[in-house]
Amino acid sequence: MEKIKFAITSKGNQISNTLMQKMKTYLLDFHLEYDENQPDIVVSVGGDGTLLYAFHRYRNRLDKTAFIGVHTGHLGFYADWTPDEIEKLVIAIAKTPYQTVEYPLLEVIIRYTNGGREARYLALNECTVKSVEGSLVMDVEIKGQRFETFRGDGLCVSTPSGSTAYNKSLGGAILHPSLQAIQIAEMASINNRVFRTIGSPLVLPGHHTALLKPVNDADFQITIDHLTLLHKDVKSIQFRVASEKIRFARFRAFPFWQRVRDSFVCDD
């Protein structure tokens, strides 16, 4: 039987770094192999932001790597283990065949007016689009048909697992991550007698594609999760459910609605 290869990423603060070293020592004692380049399992120690960084670091081997989150602050949507459970987690990784759950990702393809060139990104949480100057003005196409011209501060396109993040603060719905879907939420749309948008979040199924086409010649600030990018000469921005998925290693149940309740409702 091949040794399990593992890597650990840390938030970088003292408690996370200490836990990272502790876990690394324990797992090596169990004869697992530390491999930062080609890990079977990546343990993220910190919070959801730390796991986002880990996801982007290993996005080219999503079919080979499973993620585990340890939270050293508030309960995370991706981090289900606590610091006092480290020994239990280490034994589980070393001794227990793990199950994996898969969550959908967002594919973002940006095409440019100079032709031929395009950029492709994967987002675990969301992509946001804003104009560098003034209002964002975009023609929105859904499944190849023009839907509306959006005018406002920006648009947020999220995954189901990212629906609890920025999307929720914009009034978007919380989607269960078993759904193969993406959601489009508006940021301060302009609605009056002249300009009109749908004014509601849209949930698109996996076989639908959304396309944004700039109405004017503007530069755009585009975020992919925690990454902020400036794009010029944009012809279109395409969104759909990605063919790739993120895989989480599960050693116990981690119910999504329980996480939602604990994060937003629970006061006991």
Score class of each variant (00 low, 15 high):
130 K>H: 08
178 S>W: 00
74 H>G: 13
85 E>L: 06
108 V>I: 13
150 F>M: 02
176 H>Y: 05
183 Q>N: 11
82 T>I: 13
180 Q>H: 10
110 I>S: 07
127 C>R: 00
168 K>I: 12
134 G>P: 10
70 V>P: 07
101 V>Q: 13
161 S>W: 04
170 L>F: 03
148 E>C: 10
69 G>E: 06
184 I>F: 00
135 S>K: 10
125 N>H: 08
114 N>M: 14
123 A>R: 00
175 L>W: 02
125 N>A: 06
133 E>W: 09
159 T>M: 01
56 H>G: 11
119 A>E: 15
105 L>W: 07
158 S>A: 11
182 I>N: 02
169 S>N: 12
80 D>S: 11
108 V>W: 04
161 S>E: 07
64 K>W: 10
49 G>L: 03
64 K>F: 04
105 L>T: 06
177 P>L: 05
173 A>N: 13
60 N>I: 11
124 L>F: 08
121 Y>W: 12
119 A>K: 15
123 A>N: 03
133 E>S: 15
167 N>A: 05
57 R>G: 10
89 L>C: 09
141 E>A: 09
146 R>K: 13
130 K>A: 15
76 G>K: 03
76 G>P: 00
143 K>F: 11
150 F>G: 00
103 Y>S: 06
182 I>S: 00
107 E>Y: 09
88 K>G: 14
55 F>S: 05
109 I>D: 13
76 G>M: 05
76 G>H: 02
104 P>F: 02
100 T>H: 06
188 A>W: 00
182 I>P: 04
147 F>L: 07
143 K>T: 13
186 E>C: 10
153 D>R: 03
52 L>E: 11
154 G>D: 03
159 T>D: 05
57 R>S: 07
118 E>D: 15
102 E>T: 12
76 G>S: 02
71 H>C: 07
97 P>Q: 10
165 A>D: 07
110 I>T: 13
102 E>N: 10
104 P>K: 03
107 E>P: 07
53 Y>L: 10
51 L>G: 03
106 L>G: 02
159 T>V: 08
119 A>Q: 14
83 P>I: 06
74 H>A: 05
90 V>F: 14
141 E>Q: 14
140 V>S: 12
133 E>M: 15
125 N>R: 11
175 L>N: 12
166 Y>V: 04
68 I>Q: 13
119 A>S: 10
133 E>N: 09
124 L>R: 08
72 T>A: 00
116 G>T: 10
182 I>D: 02
139 D>K: 15
129 V>F: 10
56 H>W: 04
159 T>W: 04
147 F>S: 12
191 N>F: 01
87 E>V: 13
151 R>W: 05
173 A>D: 05
89 L>T: 02
153 D>C: 12
103 Y>I: 01
125 N>G: 06
51 L>K: 00
67 F>E: 05
138 M>V: 12
109 I>W: 04
74 H>W: 01
183 Q>V: 08
101 V>C: 09
183 Q>K: 12
61 R>C: 15
148 E>Y: 11
99 Q>I: 12
